[in-house]
Write a protein that binds this DNA or RNA. Structure first.
Lengths: 245, 245
DNA sequence: AGGTCAATATCGTTGGACGATTTCGTGTGT
DNA sequence: ACACACGAAATCGTCCAACGATATTGACCT
């Protein structure tokens, strides 16, 4: 068994308390809360890529009805976070090596566009402050070694970049949730040097954007992705699940 | 009232028969069929952007239960085809001018990537045949003046391009359904010259891909998008809904 | 005319029900 | 002992009925 990430028979601890955290906060609909809970669970490690999801189990654990859960799963399936197999239930999506490289290839032009737009539109103090705050937060989370924090701040950094750029369609098209999945899989496999290489990229991107230099921002993102691809090449080939379909 | 596209109070003809066409074909789940039906309805003009969707009305018309409809709407909402307003129902999304420009800006780098990848991977006769067939089909549909056909073939052309490229993540990230929406809105507003300019772009892209020239393919897509943007500038400013939110 | 409040329409969520399909254990034959 | 067919259990897909929550509408009052 070469797969070190996928474990389809993994069982929960009975009544994991951190799974339902955040379910009460906010006024959004229940299915949105479920989606958020599952995404957070992936970032925190409570859900493992490849893990099988059983409807009756989740309804009991999250305290919601089956219809709402099914709506949430449909939503997550559209985002590529879970895969739905007819009559065989859902499972957290697992990305093999090719899927990850494809994802990076797809995300890169979007991230470069986001950086260019942000650099062009970073003209108010409020925008500059928000980007500075996001950059500080991700560097802080990187030092703290808290994986869930780091992944959340990473996503927040991208969201801030897109928001500054002002292109709403980009926000929709960027596969950030799918990248969460990818990060959750590889984060534990990286060594310290690779981790630092990755974390330092965000600072460089932010600097270029704050300089209002679109060309430099574009180049900083490209360099960031080149580094990520290099990390992928350095990882052991058997670190990934083989054909999860 | 400047909006010539949105009509929130539009009513159906009683028992429109073409709405349920395709519901019986295939073995996919019911919610997928509902999604397809609605997307097809947008392409054909049976659903108008901005149109309000009422659950009890649709369940009666499509002959499915409310739960299944809600799952389908959730799916379509994630794809950006319908917008869900809490306690105020769903409506077909309507794109204002900025949203369309944002969409083009986002789609362009993805389409250029798709063309580059297709040009690099168009190495088997099967792939070449499928692209040739898709190109012939879209040119045929363009001549036939059948809007629904043209929009379907346009989407099929992009899907073929992505499939040849072999990047599955790109397929997921490309906002093709959202582009259907955009096309459905502007197709009726274009004049003949603009329509031909747009249709001819696909042939140029296909030629470059079949030549296995990634640089030329990238350039052909860029030129195609430049033309689309030019068409947008030539359209009357009041042709778009104002802030559908 | 303008504001206030109740009636209505619609949505959000839940629970249960039934058929369809997969999975897995059991029994049988060789 | 092993392979295969069969049946029971588990799970999913769909539907139906119901209740509370919220927005819209229109009547009523000032």
């Amino acid at each position: 068994m070469a797969s070190s990430v996928v474990d389809k028979n993994r069982e929960f601890e009975p009544a994991a308390p951190d799974l339902v955290s955040g379910l009460e906060a906010g006024v959004g609909s229940a299915v949105d809360k479920i989606s958020d809970t599952i995404i957070r669970g992936i970032r925190s490690g409570a859900f493992v890529p490849g893990q099988h999801l059983l409807e009756p189990d989740l309804t009991r654990r999250l305290g919601i009805s089956r219809g709402s859960l099914r709506e949430a799963l449909k939503h997550l399936s559209a985002a590529g976070i879970v895969t739905l197999n007819r009559f065989r239930g859902a499972c957290i999506a697992a990305l093999d090596r090719k899927s990850i490289l494809d994802l990076l290839e797809t995300l890169e032009p979007l991230a470069r566009l986001a950086a260019r737009l942000a650099a062009e539109h970073c003209d108010t103090q409020e925008k500059r402050d928000s980007l500075t705050a996001a950059t500080i937060a991700i560097e802080e989370a990187s030092r703290s070694r808290n994986r869930a924090d780091y992944l959340e701040q990473r996503r927040y950094f991208y969201s801030t970049l897109v928001e500054i750029g002002g292109n709403r369609e980009l926000e929709r098209a960027m596969p950030l949730s799918r990248t969460d999945l990818f990060r959750a899989q590889v984060e534990t496999l990286q060594n310290e040097k690779q981790r630092q290489r990755h974390a330092s990229g965000y600072g460089r991107i932010a600097t270029a954007v704050l300089d209002r230099n679109p060309v430099a921002a574009d180049r900083a993102v490209k360099r960031h992705f080149d580094g990520t691809r290099r990390t992928m090449e350095e990882l052991a080939p058997d670190s990934f699940p083989t054909l999860p379909s």
